[in-house]
Design a protein around this nucleic acid. Structure first.
Length: 258
DNA sequence: AAGCCATGCAACCGCGGCATA
DNA sequence: GTATGCCGCGGTTGCATGGCT
């Protein structure tokens, strides 16, 4: 049994939004919100549009907190690291970037960043340490602001606890990424949460996904990392809060080095 | 100047998840 | 347990623009 259509597609307008339509939508949402129902919004607002189209226009373009324009190197790093770890979960990746939408990130990856990485231009940059962990179905990411320094040094504590240098080294993941040869169809990943772990608790489960990068580790190492994260992540954080939390993690790591 | 092509991005589509009756 | 309806997501499409020949 099929789903009934959300609107009469033959009667509603499709295609690019006009300035007038934009202002109607902006004014309506500003005054009334979406009322928890996008489907009925266009009728109430006097727009001849599908509710889904209104939602998309608002979320991807008209929202006041959206940041347009070029992506920074930092954003490149975060997108790269998250994609390498969790795949094309654009909404999760976007939630770690202030003011970026999943559509923005997806388009940026598909049109620019993917090429930038596979062309090797990414290689000359100081790729910082980025890690991702998943706990209680929530993805956490941490990036050290002073990561270049950190990665240029050996860290005996991490080595002894984690047992493998490149767990924390996204540059290593990048090398693997380049060596594996990226193709547009080669984008499946393994969910870190369900990746197999059959070794003893002291061994590292380095899960190689199809991009040849490191995605997860489990066992004692997981506990170590979650302990570290739990000092900074009392709750789920997204967007602007994340940078602050990342700085806290960076401090923790710096302390552990000194 | 005109035509072609590549690129970037806004928007659409369809499906799965979830809540509710 | 099942049907219904909305939301959110990822994949894809198509148009506008700019560069090249």
């Amino acid at each position: 049994m099929g789903r009934s259509p959300c609107c009469d597609k033959a009667k509603v307008k499709k295609g690019p939004w006009s300035n007038e339509e934009d202002s109607i939508l902006v004014n309506f949402v500003a005054n009334h919100g979406n009322g928890g129902n996008w489907i009925s919004l266009p009728k109430q607002a006097g727009l001849n549009r599908c509710g889904k189209s209104c939602r998309l226009r608002w979320l991807n373009y008209l929202r006041p907190d959206i940041r347009h324009g070029d992506f920074t190197d930092d954003e490149d790093y975060i997108i790269y690291a998250l994609y390498n770890n969790i795949g094309s979960k654009w909404s999760v990746i976007a939630s770690n970037l202030t003011g970026r939408t999943d559509n923005d990130v997806k388009n940026y990856w598909n049109t620019k960043l993917k090429k930038k990485i596979s062309s090797g231009k990414f290689k000359n940059m100081n790729i910082p340490m980025v890690n991702i962990s998943k706990h209680n179905n929530t993805y956490y990411s941490g990036r050290s602001n002073s990561s270049t320094e950190l990665l240029d040094r050996s860290h005996p504590f991490l080595h002894s606890q984690v047992g493998q240098d490149d767990i924390f080294d996204t540059r290593k993941g990048y090398e693997n990424f380049i060596q594996s040869g990226y193709t547009s169809s080669n984008n499946s990943v393994t969910d870190p949460e369900i990746s197999s772990y059959s070794g003893s608790s002291s061994s590292v489960d380095v899960n190689q996904n199809s991009l040849g990068s490191i995605t997860s580790f489990k066992g004692e190492e997981d506990e170590f990392w979650m302990d570290l994260l739990s000092d900074s992540f009392d709750d789920v954080v997204h967007g602007s809060q994340l940078e602050e939390k990342i700085s806290e993690i960076a401090s923790l790591l710096d302390d552990s080095f000194s």
